Amino acid sequence: MVLSYGLGVDSSGVLTRLLTQPDVRDFNLDELVVITAGTGHEWPKTLELASQNMLPLMASKGVRYIQVARRGPQEADGVDVTSDSKRPDALQLVGNWTLANEMLDGATVPQTCGDRICSQHFKAFALDTVIAAITQGQPYRHLMGYSVHEQKRATRDSLYNTGVRQGEYPLISWEWSRQDAHRLLENTFDTQWIKSACVYCPFALSTEAGKTATLEQFAADPNAGLLALAMEYTATCLNPTQGLIKGQRLLTLLRSSGEAGEVLTMFAEYLAAVPWAVYEVRRTLSPRVDGRFNYARSIQILHAGARTDMHKRLKTSAVALKTPVSVGDPRFPDDQHPRLWLRRRHPDPRNLPTQADAEHFITIAPATAVNKTGPGFHTAWASASQYKLAV
């Protein structure tokens, strides 16, 4: 019996009820293994709630609790079990390779659309690796914290069932909503639980209530806000579409809030202190039969050094290439990054021809991203190079 424990309201509600109400379970607690896969940057409040409440509860029941994190950027690097105990007394969820490492390395941010790669890379992979090790090919039941309003997620998860793995969804079986889980946690621990999320999670910024809560948490923990801004800034330098908020930048939200002075001061100091680089960015998008697009990208560092020197390098390149440096992107009113555009992609990708389209520019940004070329880039770039839109 395995429970994926994400520290948030739903899975905390499941675990609390299983541990405190024996009549709702059909197994002994010595058969249960609770596993948490860490991304590396949970909200401090979430960690505090789990540390002060869930860890003592698990320890009092002698439940085996495993904490795991990725060891490196490749799956071949494996995972690190940071803790494995029936008397857990501390959360140890920051491994050698965090989600922030991956995002900064690739100059990107987590996405609210698509396949939720961040969850696949840092939770599903790590969990599956540990589960395979402890079950040794034997059949097991996998408990997941989907609420009664998340039937679609449960149905999607059930597609991963095999002759060995059987997914189960206690909250759905109990007909419990998140509010029911909230109520149990409040009654049990006399505290208000919060939703589990990374400090730079775009889902938390997708609603007005989420934005308000995020600003409050940044005020309490300015370092979290600094990490989110640093991640977004480099990502938007290298790709104007990569903001943490749809249609808006987190930086713009913080500047307009009037409540983020400390975070913004720290961010300005960060930009002044870190090394910068001149980047050459090439990106392709290839139409798919389902109407969506495959994207591929190549990032190359041309120069690295102080911020002012990189500005000079960009201007020198503009003179050599006889192309002016433009500031900002008209598609995004709050974009103020300087770029030397060598090729722009089609303004409406739905009208693309059958080949790939592409964009190509040189820009400057904090030197957190590394040289990286996607596996399908060269083929897509060769196809896109068969035609060229006006710069």
Rank of each mutant, 00 (worst) to 15 (best):
I134T: 08
R288F: 02
K45S: 11
A76Q: 11
P170E: 09
P88C: 14
N239H: 11
A306T: 11
V81A: 00
A390G: 12
T241F: 03
Y65L: 07
C201V: 01
L251R: 05
M1Q: 12
V263H: 02
D89T: 15
D290P: 08
R307G: 05
T98A: 05
S256C: 08
R64E: 04
R345H: 12
T162G: 08
V68N: 12
D30W: 06
V164N: 00
K322I: 11
N28I: 01
D89P: 02
L18D: 01
K388A: 11
M1H: 12
G8S: 01
Y200H: 05
C198K: 02
I117Y: 15
A133P: 07
I172E: 11
R25Q: 06
S383N: 12
A50I: 04
A181H: 07
V14L: 04
N161K: 09
E186F: 11
A220H: 05
A124T: 13
R292V: 02
S12T: 05
A37S: 01
L3T: 10
R141L: 14
D348W: 07
R178I: 11
N53V: 03
L238M: 11
M1N: 13
T207K: 10
H142K: 10
D84T: 03
L15F: 09
L185P: 06
A132M: 08
H121N: 12
L389T: 09
N371I: 00
A369D: 01
Q111A: 13
Y270D: 03
E48I: 08
V14H: 03
T354Y: 14
D30M: 07
I66M: 11
V319P: 00
P338A: 05
Q386T: 14
L127V: 04
H311A: 12
R153P: 15
V9Q: 01
L314Y: 05
L19V: 11
A219P: 09
P324K: 08
I245S: 03
Y65G: 01
N187E: 14
D80Q: 13
S177R: 14
V68M: 07
F332I: 10
T20A: 09
S257I: 02
T108A: 01
E75K: 10
F293R: 08
P349N: 05
P202Y: 06
